[in-house]
Design a protein around this nucleic acid. Structure first.
Ligand SMILES: [Mn+2]
Ligand SMILES: [Mn+2]
Ligand SMILES: [Mn+2]
Ligand SMILES: [Mn+2]
Lengths: 220, 220
DNA sequence: AATATAATTTAGTTTCACCTAAAAAAATAT
DNA sequence: ATATTTTTTTAGGTGAAACTAAATTATATT
């Protein structure tokens, strides 16, 4: 099993992230996700298809094979382990780590990743609340839903973000709505879909945009 | 100051390692060091010369500029910091880290390296006894000389290796001649240049090849 | 069903970092 | 000083991964 190029790994990871049940992934969506052009995507899909990492038929959209899925998950594993390292050990902020992990995820060394995983204590969740696949690709199912879909007067714990941009993460830091915080949904405004939360007796109003990008898990 | 490519960084680092006072570095030497061909080297030298990282005149051999030297040292800094991390934190062995550091040294992020340096406690020496340049390029002068040049009956501390191959490092592990050990040079054989050392009352015989690749520093 | 629009593929270029083979220059030996 | 060898450069080419523009196929609209 010959090593993949950085570009190939990035395509596999993109396909993993773009996957939707019962839908082939389109060239446009991939190009958009990777900031390239559809023509470049077509070329790469042909290459990956020859390597049996995905099934590709002209105009049909693309699906990862078992092998391709495993490779993609491995890249995701490395990305999230590095993010965990950067936040937990090097004290970088959760909005600073993604771009660095985009580079680190391509370092080729199985022993490195095993040692890193051990050193970090086999973490299950990355700094943004995303699950970290283990060596075999298994990961915990994060039982979460979107903040904008939760019923009134339920208690919920912030468990992750859908939007990973620096701008959004910094905003959450500013309003102190970080992972682990427990909130109670008090009110949902019809007009602008904004939400009022209660956090330790205090009330916090968040916009629709924020609510839509926050993942929470219900609390007893 | 636009970022350098991996290849450009590797050339600069090679030039740093190949540098000899009062000698331009030749195309062949560089090609040999980088496992590429002289023709490829010539091309890259032209490019780096245009970027003012070195001075290049056809057939004259090449010398790093201030700017080029600083960039090279920065790559060396990153390489050695990562090696220190891999050994000190991840418990990899000193013969396993070089190839991984060859990849890690190219990760582009100043804040990452600053944080890593801080996390490691600003180490001054890498696992092979080589000095780690600081942010400004300063590094401690390691006051060492080759084991094969040391006078009889002097005490010396193993301080580094000239040969960085896995084979050599593993051999040193086997004979337990690792960095920090204090030895006394008891005998030097005329015939094969092998050396007899005394380590805690016990005698150890090492070959010429080993002696020539070991760096030591004198001890009171 | 015919047409318009959107998605995808093909064709032809570009840049980077490498290569081989041949030419040119420099260094060494006779 | 000339001839030989070694080093370095030039010329021409390759493969990977991108690009633009044009052609093709699929989907949506009338
Ligand atoms: Mn990320
Ligand atoms: Mn993440
Ligand atoms: Mn090294
Ligand atoms: Mn080293």
């Amino acid at each position: 099993m010959i090593a993949l190029t950085i570009s190939e790994e990035n395509y596999l990871k993109a396909l993993y992230h773009l996957y939707q049940p019962d839908e082939g992934i389109g060239t446009n969506a991939i190009a958009n996700h990777l900031n390239t052009k559809p023509a470049s995507v077509t070329e790469m899909l042909k290459k990956l298809s020859e390597k049996k990492l995905l099934t590709y038929e002209k105009y049909q959209g693309v699906i990862l094979t078992k092998k391709g899925y495993a490779s993609a998950l491995n890249v995701v594993r490395r990305h999230r382990l590095w993010e965990y390292f950067l936040v937990d050990k090097l004290n970088l902020k959760w909005d600073e780590v993604h771009d660095i992990a985009e580079q680190l995820e391509h370092i080729q060394s199985d022993v490195l990743i095993e040692k890193l995983d051990m050193y970090l204590g086999h973490p299950k969740i990355d700094p943004h609340g995303d699950p970290i696949p283990d060596k075999e690709g298994k990961m915990c199912i994060v039982n979460c839903c979107c903040m904008s879909e939760i019923k009134l007067n339920t208690k919920a714990k912030i468990s992750g973000v859908k939007n990973h941009t620096t701008a959004f993460l910094k905003h959450l830091d500013k309003i102190e709505l970080v992972i682990g915080k427990v909130v109670k949904i008090k009110e949902r405004n019809e007009f602008d879909q904004s939400v009022a939360l209660e956090i330790n007796k205090k009330v916090l109003h968040i916009s629709k945009d924020v609510a839509q990008n926050l993942l929470v898990e219900k609390v007893k």
